[in-house]
Design a protein around this nucleic acid. Sequence first.
RNA 1: UCCUGAGUAGCUCAAUGGUAGAGCAUCCGGCUGUUAACCGGAGGGUUGUAGGUUCGAAUCCUACCUCAGGAGCCA
Length: 432
Amino acid sequence: MSRNATRIGALRERIGDEILLEGWLYNRRSSGKLEFLLVRDGSGIVQCVAVKAELPEGVFARCATVTQESSVRVTGVVREDKRAPSGVEISLRDIEIVGASTDFPITPKEHGPSFLLDQRHLWIRSQRQAAVLKIRHTLVQACRDWLDADGFILADAPIFTPSACEGTTTLFETQYFDEKAYLTQSGQLYNEATAMAFGRSYCFGPTFRAEKSKTRRHLIEFWMVEPEVAFATLDDVMVLIERFVEGIVGRVLEKRREELKILERDVAPLERVRAPFPRVSYDDSARLLRGKGVPFEWGNDFGATDETVLTEGYDRPFFVHRFPAAVKAFYMKRDPGDDRLSLSCDLLAPEGYGEIVGGGEREDSLDRLVERIHEHKLPLDAFQWYLDLRRYGSVPHSGFGMGIERTLTWLCGIEHLRETIPFPRMLNRLRP
RNA sequence: UCCUGAGUAGCUCAAUGGUAGAGCAUCCGGCUGUUAACCGGAGGGUUGUAGGUUCGAAUCCUACCUCAGGAGCCA
């Protein structure tokens, strides 16, 4: 935007002034001797009114030729007007077409998801999509601000890794000069190293899972924030998670009311997000599911429908803790009270959204960790640096990972997480 | 990988064995306060691909392709 242009978001402060607007035509309606031009500039949408009787012939004629998504410079006077969609409108004095747009593919009518995703580079111009991405921006900032204020150091994990972090899921293989490398599926192992350096650390970046998952809850490339804390137990990390989630939800409510309104999100459930969150053990969850007639077997992880049934009982996020060790990663510490269980926890979002956070206490004993690596049939050599963390001043430590897109899907109250990232990477979708 | 469903105009859809249509978008005309504006007119099609059944296929059958939802797996 040029220096002398005014942003639409700031128009209320300029009532009565003649201003310059730089943006794109969102929609146009004409009524004979009137033209209504809806102009957007990324900060909002405003209606510009051209009156034939008050304008030179050429200017009014030009208004009638502006097509959807053409870029324009409009000069005019800011006025309050109840008839305008935003309550403020511009009496148009002049208009310049900067770049014409012909046959913009996304018309102001219904479209299917496949078509819209093909047009994702243009779809993000629409009001709803832009609102979701602005909330994403605020969520990311809130995560970082909250952790920074709590004494965490950002220490990002690498994206190229020599081997699996968790061994179980499918990795993207790539060439690293003369050897094979993989794209990271979690910064977890590296975070344990940085936590031993800084006490509290976190990484925030993209992760990659080459799973053939094809549901509304999966992306191939997604973002996670993963804090790790030295000397913290499972109970400590659950307190950290609930304070963190309360904080970031509060920030989104504070900064993004308008966008939540565009999305028609009922904010009442978000306003109930106050720590402490309920805690329920895996054992009790399994019993609860069976009590409701769900054919759930002890030892399994929860499926999507299991999670939905569980969330029905709560009006705020809640923890499920102490999952069977077999369904969690090798580095999870066993429950000293029951060796079948791990000191792990998931945070499930209410309203049927399900898991947004996974965390727990890590195995801090060198011998037991070596045992786990063997059990999982992982190459011991690749983990020597990780085992060093237990050789040189090992401490109890815990951490968690929060999926940004899943959290956003819940905050925005939308159906599918593909709308929460600017350019989603999914099974069968690498473009645009 | 498996299960279910869908592919017809640029987009969203109708046409259930008998002349392929509507709304929006585009173009032309009309309208001095429109709110996904409205009214009139025009152009726009190898019905996903290949084969088969039939006098006749968008429609029935077979295979394949693409997409969507779900399962498994996960954040």
